[in-house]
């Protein structure tokens, strides 16, 4: 019923692109997945706001046609479907892209019809808002965790298991020394996760509905 589930926001953007130009996008998408193209993804990874995101370019013929009873699509444009699962508010996300990796972003949306480019910000805001589809049901397996938390958890748990395997039966002095070394190794991952703070008016609305529901349920 909402774009928000805990610390994650579900963004859907559907934009038209001329069918022959979508190949350029596809080439670019192929390129960034190769070693030389990785630089384009470095900015995305460093932003560290995203769990998973994806782009799917669907040509008119690729719209699923399941049965003769279903009318065939008569559209001419191809459509790019963008899906993101990110931490923070809509504005934080869009603004971060705009300031941190505008070039990469513009390549992702190359040749989309009337794409205004990600700089300056206001036309870009308007473009995303206009082409965004609201999510009807959003599910997140870990509403308390950001993408940073998931990555930190993987790092910390690996080190913790290894430490326990090797050192749990050391003599106490050695144990403490190794334990301190463990803490230094995982210090960047030690933190407590709590429910998300309220970061926008829509997050506030979600929170109010939730607390209303739990009141009703407990009554």
């Amino acid at each position: 019923m909402s774009n928000i589930a805990g610390k994650s926001y579900a963004m859907n953007v559907v934009t038209p692109a001329k069918w022959y130009l979508t190949w350029l996008n596809k080439l670019f998408f192929g390129f960034v997945q190769l070693p030389g193209g990785a630089a384009y993804l470095k900015g995305l990874l460093t932003l560290s706001l995203i769990h998973y995101a994806r782009w799917a370019i669907v040509s008119p013929k690729q719209f699923p046609h399941l049965d003769p009873s279903q009318p065939k699509e008569t559209i001419k444009y191809s459509y790019m479907f963008f899906f993101s699962n990110f931490n923070g508010s809509w504005a934080q996300y869009v603004d971060s892209f705009h300031t941190a990796i505008p070039g990469g972003l513009d390549l992702f949306w190359t040749k989309n019809v009337k794409y205004p480019k990600s700089v300056p910000l206001q036309p870009f805001h308007a473009y995303i808002t206009y082409n965004q589809v609201w999510t009807n049901h959003y599910y997140n397996a870990y509403p308390l965790a950001s993408s940073n938390d998931v990555k930190n958890a993987q790092h910390l748990s690996g080190k913790l298991r290894a430490f326990n395997d090797v050192h749990s039966n050391d003599d106490p002095q050695d144990f403490q020394q190794a334990y301190n070394a463990l803490l230094l190794e995982v210090q960047g991952a030690i933190s407590i996760m709590e429910p998300t703070p309220i970061i926008s008016l829509s997050a506030q609305a979600v929170e109010e509905r939730l607390s209303h529901e739990s009141e009703v349920n407990s009554a």
Partner: peptide, 18 residues
């Protein structure tokens, strides 16, 4: 933004809810 994301929250610093 500063108040909410950087004072009362910690995700941008990879600190969860610190």
């Amino acid at each position: 933004f500063v108040q909410q994301q950087w004072i009362n929250y910690g995700n941008d610093f990879k600190l969860a809810n610190e």
